[in-house]
Amino acid sequence: MSDTQHGQFDALAALYAMGALGEDERDAFETHLEVCVECVNEVKSLLPVTHGLTHGALPLEAPAALRARVLGEVTGVTPSPREAPAAALLDTRFGALEGSETFAHVVEPPRRGAGLLFWLTATLLVAAAGGGGWYVSELDRQTQGLRANMDAAMQLAKRAELELESVRSAAAEREAVLAIVTGSDVGQLELTGQPLAPRASARALWNAAADMVVLATGLPPLPAGDVYQLWFVLPDAPVSATLVKPGPRGDATVMLKVPDAVTLPTVMALTIEPAGGVDAPTGDVYLLGQPAE
């Protein structure tokens, strides 16, 4: 095997180990492997990586009903129940004891009804002591009622004020978005859903003043404690654009100022990250957009 011929296949060992060659390419490479020890060794050295990648997915708890379905249908035998792990066994044995009636009376929490009965009795005794005391007490009760009503009214007014502010803010945002989208100098980049979010998509639009709006749709719900983070993927390193929190239907509209260091168009990506965001992307990619070449 001459160096020239080996050179044609040198870069394919990694793709072969990944199973990423098309049928014809794979056949040709396997023919080459029969005569090239160097490529055989290269593939062998990469196999632990490609096999190890099967362990790269996060383990997940399967639905409990799946066990009986799988084991029953595969073996034709009704499966015995799963053995309880040690911790669960301890809970089963001792948890029930703690909640049993035998111990319930030992440490009994104070009952609200008992306290109320005490004060009602005391109030009646005070009332019986003199009519003037009862009158003062009744006035006090009415005053407290009025004060509670006033607090409720104030809260309603505050809520209405906040809603009005929210509507004003949304209207201003819509105007700003429209100004970018309908401008004569608008640039745009489509971001497409990746394997984890095949139905998601987004469009980034920007103007010459470096105002950008990103309209996303179809984003999957976020796990608790996570947030979506948008990135400008520059040749040197990704630069964070902004955090994105979609609404309940998976839609999001975000506005941002493009940093000076970023020259548009550039690759953009949306990843999932811990709440508060991170300095460099670490999570899975949900959206990816590349400028046309």
Binding site: A17, G19, L33, V43, P48
Partner: peptide, 13 residues
């Protein structure tokens, strides 16, 4: 494409 271990006789670590 099955990962090519059997073809090469490589043992999985």
């Amino acid at each position: 494409v099955e990962l090519p271990d059997s073809a090469l006789g490589a043992e999985n670590e």
